[in-house]
Every structure is written in C-alpha cells, then in structure tokens.
Design a protein around this nucleic acid. Structure first.
Length: 195
DNA sequence: GCCAGGATCGTCT
DNA sequence: GACGATCCTGGCG
C-alpha cells in the first residue's frame, strides 16, 4: 500500500503552499469521508495575519492543529452545535486553513439524508456538510490523505471549472477580504450570493 | 417566500 | 462570564 496512492489523490504536498492557491484549487475536488462523498463547490481561506482566523493572536490548545503540518483536518465546534471542517495548509509553523463551506453531494446521498434527517439541502453549509459526511471533533488533526478521508483532483465536468472570489460569510472581522472561493454557476449552493 | 430570533457548549480573557 | 467561520423554526405578508 505504501506509496501506492491512487492517481489524482491529493497528498500533503498539495496543501504545502499558499492557502489561497489551495483554497482556489480545492474547488471541484471530490471529498470523500467513509461511504459518502461530494464535490467541493465553495471554500474560504484563513491565515495567521487574518483577524478572523482562530490562529490570530497566537497558539492555543484549541488551534494547535492549524500550526501543524499541512494536509490535516482541523475540526472545531461552532456556536456549541456545529462542527466545521477545515483543511490545514502551508508549512508546519505557518497557521493557515481552508474552510469547506459547501459540497455538491455525489455518493452516499441516502446515508446523508438519514444523518441529516431534515431539510432538502444536504451539504449547502459548513455545519450541514459535516453532519451529512459524519465528520465530528474526533477527526480533528486526522490526515486528509488517510481513511476515512480522501480528496481527489477534479474530474469530468469539474476539470478547469471557473472559480470566482468574493467576501467571506458569517464573520465579524476582516469581512472585506475577498478570500471566499466558489465554483462559477454554483454561487447559489450555500444560498449566499457573492455580491 | 422572507425575516428575526433562539439554541448550545467549548474555548479564551 | 461572554462570544462565535451556523442552522432551524416560527410568525407574518
């Protein structure tokens, strides 16, 4: 198994560079967790110079994963209810991550519906997609290149899909930074227009 | 269909 | 002791 990564599977090297490049190129990628999977259609970039980032203000026990090596999952609880999934980027010591905001469900949709229990939109928000995929705090710090995670490069219709940038959502600091990335034509997915 | 308000808990000051 | 990278429900037009 060692070194036998399947073609198109993204490893740690993919995340070992500017968080903005990573956030942009993650659009269209397929994210699988266990038996469920979806195509990433919306992301947001955060880095240590960003007041809205958890790492802004220094290292704590909560955000230590952000400072660690790239290619890992940073999962945390928001509003005491929702788990949010991030992909840690940039070299170890440089705190940066990409928040996965929305997916287009492609596999295990039946399971997603059972997990969600209500609503039509299975993965149209960061809190919803984690529930649909079964991602919880227990996966904080887990490697994205190892089970249950798998991220693969864009295929088919998603190859070279146009990506547009806009302001971020749901934050009170540095709202104006255009670090939100979205697949053109899917701006509606999270029900938050870019403008 | 749109908008306003409440839920809920780990983490930081 | 207060806040937050959110979601869902209920009420009204």
């Amino acid at each position: 198994m060692r070194g036998a990564a399947r073609r198109g599977v993204l490893g740690a090297d993919f995340f070992d560079r500017s968080v903005h490049d990573v956030a942009r190129e993650m659009i269209g990628c397929r994210l699988a967790v266990g038996s469920t999977a979806g195509v990433i259609v919306e992301t947001e970039a955060y880095d240590a110079t960003d007041p809205a980032c958890h790492a802004f203000g220094g290292l704590t026990t909560r955000n230590e994963v952000l400072f660690g090596p790239p290619g890992r999952a940073y999962v945390y609880l928001s509003y005491g209810i929702h788990s949010l999934l991030n992909a840690v980027a940039e070299p170890e010591g440089s705190a940066a991550a990409v928040l996965i905001r929305a997916l287009e469900p492609v596999e295990g949709i039946r399971v997603m519906r059972e997990r969600r229990g209500r609503g039509d939109e299975l993965c149209s928000g960061p809190g919803k997609l984690t529930e649909a995929l079964g991602v919880g705090l227990n996966l904080n710090g887990a490697e994205l290149a190892a089970p249950p995670f798998e991220i693969t490069a864009p295929e088919g219709d998603w190859t070279g899909v146009e990506v547009v940038a806009g302001p971020r959502i749901g934050i009170t600091k540095a709202v104006e930074l255009p670090w939100r990335y979205c697949a053109a034509g899917n701006e509606h997915v999270s029900r938050r227009p870019l403008l």
